[in-house]
Nucleic acid binder design. Structure first.
Lengths: 246, 246
DNA sequence: CGTTTAGTTGACCGTGCTCAAGGGGCGTGG
DNA sequence: CCACGCCCCTTGAGCACGGTCAACTAAACG
């Protein structure tokens, strides 16, 4: 791992993310910021931050950049089980279990903060609203996981990809990473295929179908959704499972 | 819902389940038992205990019987996202979010205990080991969810079904519901299909393949696994994700 | 300027789906 | 007691969604 001490410390998405679940008071926000600033690291794209079987000692909070949680089978087949976006806290509470059951790798350059378990628990103890917000984040993550099972198990390829695009778009909204109807989209087609349970070839054809239907524009790592409602319909997307207070 | 006051109060599987994560002291076990006994209910097979969109007011703990968590699409397609087995605590902590994102229905007659949020929080506060064990259960549940995404997204039908059977078998072990190489298996083929993302027809054929290969005997709601290692191989099953201390 | 990585296209094929029909067990009602 | 309906399981036939294999382009990079 080529982690080096980073420079920019944008803790804003973290606060915004948590605020989607519970009001975060100024004092709590300041405490988070202080803790996050203690150890800011940076990895380039394509590096594994954690591997299945690792001991979950530290908590990582993503300040900028995208990652993927994934699992692999012995013969190399890979399934991405979730994306980790700016503002997300990676494995809060995972230290309660003895081993990590999945790996995580960076899709882009990632700037993140690493927190020792002790500092994290101190943060939890300092503000009950903050603690609840962090628990909510973990629970909402589990809810996303359930929805992915539905997506992969019961939706057709076109619906599946449409749904995933809607999810990512809606998850970027509360952290302020949308530009109108566009957003950065650094996920390769191979990763999209591994996230949807499709082959790269078929994923490619499915994307082209979505483009041909005028639902999306996707090029140069930027996604534009011209008609979000239409895309949501195409993906049978219902945002309840994201659990944003709204 | 045809819930009526139940009779037998077997809290043993609950203690065994929690003990897989943290040692549960006598005092804590007694406190659980007292709380669980307060309100024991019973439903017949085929009833929804909770529906997507409900408010998560109470916690339910399964004393006996099996349930399925599921989600449905507008057009009726259904995906079972997890099975809930005896000893499982259904939605601990779900009350932190405002709505439930999935439904749950009974596969058999189910005897369960219903706990108010206040009693549950009192239980949590009374013993930190117990609280940790309950959090571990929730985290392990999320881990199962991840593995299901892999199962549905990247395994072939035969592997997929083999994997699911191994998982259920191994989950029944710590709660003491195995009889040698057999266990009760009240899941219909339709439910198995909805859990694996297959059609009923293909699931039926896959089961027959497993039978023909001499890997399982499944009849009269009883599953017998003659060669567990062989079945684990067939399903590329690795039990890490269950997070049992072992 | 070669090499690598990401995206694209074509052709073929197989896993798994759909539609359809029938069998067996079981409970209910005539 | 038998008839009927219902649920669950099973089987056959045809087909389609999506996988595999292979080749090619274009951009990025050293």
């Amino acid at each position: 791992m080529t982690a080096t001490r980073g420079t920019g410390t944008q803790t804003d998405p973290v606060i915004r993310r948590l605020s989607a679940f519970r009001p975060i008071r100024e004092a709590a926000a300041a405490a988070i910021e202080r803790t996050l600033r203690e150890r800011v690291l940076r990895v380039d794209a394509g590096h594994d931050l954690i591997l299945e079987g690792d001991r979950p000692d530290r908590i990582r909070v993503v300040l900028s950049g995208w990652l993927a949680r994934y699992k692999t089978l012995e013969d190399g087949r890979r399934q991405i089980v979730n994306f980790v976006l700016p503002g997300d806290t990676c494995n809060p509470f995972a230290y309660l279990l003895s081993r990590l059951d999945h790996s995580m790798s960076s899709l882009t350059t990632v700037i993140y903060s690493e927190i020792e378990r002790e500092s994290f628990e101190a943060l939890l103890a300092s503000d009950s609203m903050l603690a609840e917000a962090l628990w909510c984040e973990a629970l909402a993550d589990a809810a996303i996981q359930r929805e992915w099972a539905v997506n992969i198990g019961r939706r057709m390829a076109l619906e599946r990809v449409a749904h995933l695009l809607c999810e990512i778009f809606e998850r970027l909204r509360p952290v302020g990473l949308l530009n109108g109807d566009s957003c950065a989209f650094p996920i390769t087609q191979m990763d999209l295929a591994d996230a949807t349970g499709l082959s790269v070839v078929h994923l490619n054809r499915t994307l082209q179908e979505l483009r041909a239907a005028g639902l999306i524009v996707l090029r140069e790592r930027t996604l534009t959704i011209s008609d979000l409602d239409a895309l949501k319909n195409a993906g049978l997307f219902n945002p309840i499972y994201l659990h944003y207070a709204a």
